[in-house]
Design a protein around this nucleic acid. Structure first.
Lengths: 239, 239
DNA sequence: CACCACGATGGAACGTCGTTCCAGAGCTTG
DNA sequence: CAAGCTCTGGAACGACGTTCCATCGTGGTG
């Protein structure tokens, strides 16, 4: 139907769903979630709002598509070892996890969107993408077949939860000015924790010191190792 | 300043921040996130939109307050054992986790909101609430002091990630009609997984069968046990 | 070659939302 | 009793998502 690949050669490259989604991601990255407007998007694509609706059903579908595009790129980025220098399954899982972690860092809007999408349709298009990347490594780890779902789900959920919170840590530091660097920000929060009500928050006060100097990536990977150790203990290889 | 507690006795009970937040939660529960409107809220409280702004700065603060109120109630609900029949720390953690899990089930809007809030200000008011509840049990578990932060964070992140995805499972089943029950819904998704591209999704296809019959709460607790086992293995009690 | 049908476009218009503004009510104080 | 404050609630504003429709360009048809 769509002609025989002759260059359309219109006054501009034709509007396509992919171009729209790409522009949406750029807009989300630069001006934030509230900045993604059909009008701004139309202006960026040198068109009108109505034209976009021919390719995309609405804003929620646009956000879903942007989320899926970014996640797909993130999990497809890492595992490109063509039978390479034999990465261990554990390192494979770390790589996938860091891929998603980095994506939420580069795209601060990703974590909330991902949560919203998973909450709306838990097993939609994006969950299997992540599940598959993790699951392959779980399988390679030698986890018994009956435990595949449990182990992979647990890993996925930890990754989503941790990436969601840690994402904004490095870049923003929202409540304070953008000029405040990470060390100062953590120091501020840590001090705030220490002055919480001793009756209501005894533990948080005691742990405040560890918050002060912690490294997000390091803690993130420590959590991964925790889950992996649990998998080794509770679901050891059959052999 | 605020009088000496004489009954105001206006024509109706006075508008207060608490009443507003309570009404917002009810509205969120009944008509969903899009249904929470300053106009609808004003009508429910028999007032105008302007009056609400005297007690609440804006919509984002209203959502934050609603989220915090629900989370606070959820984590305060469970650990009410007055030196009762000696719940073990592990059961204590399960209780806190199930408390949050149940909250996301009763309030489908909670998971996305929680994610958005944690992403915006990672160590805001709501994170310490959850962190404290979990941390106390981690402490009781005998985890060495140096590992408190790591262990508690990992547990919190797993809980947030898992609760976020599983929340909608029981009630909604969005893409299908609301009449479709859980078994049919899972069967539908499982079948969809099985017909994914064998090259792209080998693992997910293989795990589809385990998705079909799984129980959300059971899987959720299995993940908790996985993290707990990892904590035992990597951060054993000092004694 | 003229014509038409249809995929695709983009600007205008509609209704609703968050938010602001302000006139005034009710309570407290001098 | 008058003045000043807290608090109220309705009207109005600007921006948004979405719909509508007049129009364009292209490929197939007579």
């Amino acid at each position: 139907m769509a002609a025989r690949t002759r260059r359309p050669d219109r006054r501009q490259e034709p509007l396509t769903r992919e171009r729209i989604v790409d522009a949406a991601v750029e807009l989300l990255d630069t001006v934030g979630e509230d900045g993604l407007t059909f009008r701004a998007l139309a202006e960026r694509l040198a068109t009108g709002p109505g034209a976009i609706y021919w390719h995309v059903a609405g804003k929620s579908e646009l956000l879903s598509a942007a989320t899926e595009a970014v996640v797909t790129a993130a999990v497809a980025d890492e595992p490109t070892e063509p039978t390479g220098p034999a990465t261990s399954p554990r390192d494979g899982i770390r790589a996938v996890a860091l891929g998603l972690f980095g994506a939420t860092e580069r795209h601060p809007w990703l974590a909330p969107q991902l949560a919203a999408q998973l909450s709306r349709s838990p097993w939609g298009a994006v969950a299997p993408r992540i599940f598959e990347s993790i699951g392959r490594q779980v399988q390679a780890l030698g986890v018994p077949r009956d435990s595949w779902f449990t182990a992979s789900s647990a890993l996925m959920h930890y990754i989503l939860g941790a990436a969601g919170q840690n994402a904004a840590n490095t870049t923003s530091a929202d409540t304070f000015g953008p000029g405040v660097d990470r060390a100062r920000f953590l120091d501020e929060v840590s001090t705030a924790w220490e002055s919480l009500d001793p009756d209501e928050y005894p533990f948080t006060r005691a742990a405040a010191g560890q918050l002060r100097g912690h490294d997000d990536r390091e803690q993130f990977l420590a959590g991964i190792d925790l889950v992996l150790a649990g998998i080794s203990a509770l679901h050891p290889p059959a052999s």
